[in-house]
Structure formats: structure tokens, C-alpha cells
Amino acid sequence: MNSSRLSTLTTPLLQFFFIAALAFGAVSLLLIALGLSPMAIAESMSAGSISNWMRISHLLSIWTPLLLCASGLLFTFRAGLWNIGIEGQMVMGAIGATAVLRMLNGVAPPGLVIALAMAGGLLGGGMWGMFVGLLRNRGGVNEIFGGLGLNFVAQGIILWLIFGPWKRAGIASMSGTDLLARDLWLSTPPGWRVAPVALGLAAGAFLLTALLLANTRFGLQLKAVGKNQQAARLFGIQPNLVGLTAMMLGGGLAGLAGCLQVTAVYHRLIPSISSGYGYLGLLIVMLAGYRAAAVPFIALFFAALAAGSIQLPIVLQIDSSLSGVIQGACVLSALVVHGLHQQKRSR
């Protein structure tokens, strides 16, 4: 093995070591300063996320939307786009799926309705992603601002639907719409908290994403556009079209995540259907250094933090938002380490 190949293998591992050490050190110092024991918290969080199959399957139910959102973001980041609008795309996917489920309930076989709801989720999220892309291409609106604006619009639409046309019989409630008919739920085996179909879809979507990025001409074009739009034109690539496709694919996968939240987790449409998983997806991909291979593991870690933090208030009387602090510390550490690495390379 030559030295350059060795360095391409060791550099990410070294970076990961430094990121983990920095994040662990920063969070531990913060906790000690607050008079809390990092070890007790770590034990409590691991017990809350992986101590038995029920908890592991709950962790996997969080991993599913995280992996889908992060897979979608791999496309947009590869094209050099910051898809902050992923939350809105997830919401619109949930709305698209719910619309299909409500319209076709009792009209078609449940399996077909669920499959069409997934298509509705893909379409809803994909179209919302497309709007961000069109605003960027046609209106010159930066995708960050376009996406952020459309997040608010999507949140407005979901609230309007839940408190208006789709409100529960007799009363509108923040708890969401009426529960779906039981046969429209994605089936979950006894003792499981995650639907195997949802898990399979997320894993399949991730593998397909990794394949498209690494082993297709489209993946290469995304890379070219993300790194140098001007030069990409010289290769006959249309950067706007490639970027728009990335936004649609990213939005579509986020929309599918929204659909699965409806059909496999909540079994209804709720105002906070995205649960911030879109934003977490952004952090996961950044922490992964925009590399597909690391995404499932970091998503699993983030899911474990989210699942494990739920019992912190009960066991240690600590707010569960601590998981957000840890996630933030990890991403900041990653940005610092990547920044230092870039600086060293450019010298």
C-alpha cells in the first residue's frame, strides 16, 4: 500500500478521533462545571437507548427518518447546495401522504393505498425541493433563504390543515388529525417500535443514494457542479438542471421520511411531524464530512442520543435537550477539525 493511499484511509480516522475527543472534552467540561457527572449521564443515555430490544427498535424508528433526510442531503451537499428547506420538504411529504391516505381510504386495497401514500410523500417533498431550486435558478433566491421561507409556508399549511379541513371530528387539536384506519398503518411486529418496511426503505434509499453518488455519471456531475460550476459548463453540464435534480431528490427522500412518520410512527398528521429531523440530518452529513459511508453510523449515534435523552429528566432530573447540546458540540468540533485540516492543506 503506498503512502498516499494509506493517508486517504488514516486521515478520516484521525479526524474522527480528534472530533470525538474535542466534543467529549467540551461536553464533559460543561457538565462538570454544572456539577453533573458525565459518566452517569452516559450510562443513563445508553440504558435509555440500547438496554433492550424495545429501546433499540425505538432508536431505529428515529434512525429511519434521520437516514432518509441525511441521504437526501448528500445529493444537495454534493451539488454545493445548502438545503435548509429539508424540514419543509419533510412536512410537505407528510401532507402529501396524508392526502392520499384520506382520499383513498376504503377505495383501494390498504397495501396499494400505503404504496400510493409513499409516492405522495416523495412527490410532496420533491415538489417542495423543486420550488427551492426554481426560486434559486429563476429568481436568484439563495437556496438557504428560499428553503427557510418555504419551511414557514409548509408549517403554515400543516397547521391550517390540522385546524381546518382535516381537523378531528368535533374539535381541532394540536395533537393532530384523527388516527388513520388501522389497516393503513405500516405493520409493526409485537414488541417492536419500528416498522420493518420503514427500516428497509430507509436502508434501501441510503444504499441507492451511495450507489448513485459513487458509481454513476450523475454522481460525478453533482460533484463537478458542487466544486466548480463554471468549469462544469465546459464539460457540457447544465449546473442549474443538475442542482434542481439534486433538490428534487433530496426533497423526495425527506418527503418519504415525512410519509413514514405518518404511516409508521404517529399514524396521523401532527403539527410537529418533522420533529427537527431535517435539521439533524444537516448536522449528520456535516459531521460525516459529506461522506456517504459515515452517514448511517453518525445517524445511529444521533438517534441513540435522541432516544437515550428521553429518560434523563426522570432518572437524573436533567432536561432532555442535553442531547441537542451534545449533537451541537459534535458538529462544532467537526467544523473546527475540518477547518484546521483545510488550513493545513492550503499552507
Binding site: 458509481n215 455519471r217 450523475f218 460525478l220 456531475q221 460533484k223 463537478a224 466544486k227 466548480n228
Partner: peptide, 21 residues
């Protein structure tokens, strides 16, 4: 040229490579 892309990747982009690589 595209920084970060290898010589092989540049040539693939410039050629009529198939969809799957």
C-alpha cells in the same frame, strides 16, 4: 478544471461514459 476531481474523473466527465460507472 474541477478541484478535488481526479484525472480519471475528469476524463470520465469529458467522455461519453455510460450512466453507471
Amino acid at each position: 478544471l474541477i478541484p478535488g476531481l481526479s484525472i480519471r474523473e475528469h476524463l470520465l466527465l469529458a467522455s461519453d461514459s455510460p450512466f453507471f460507472i
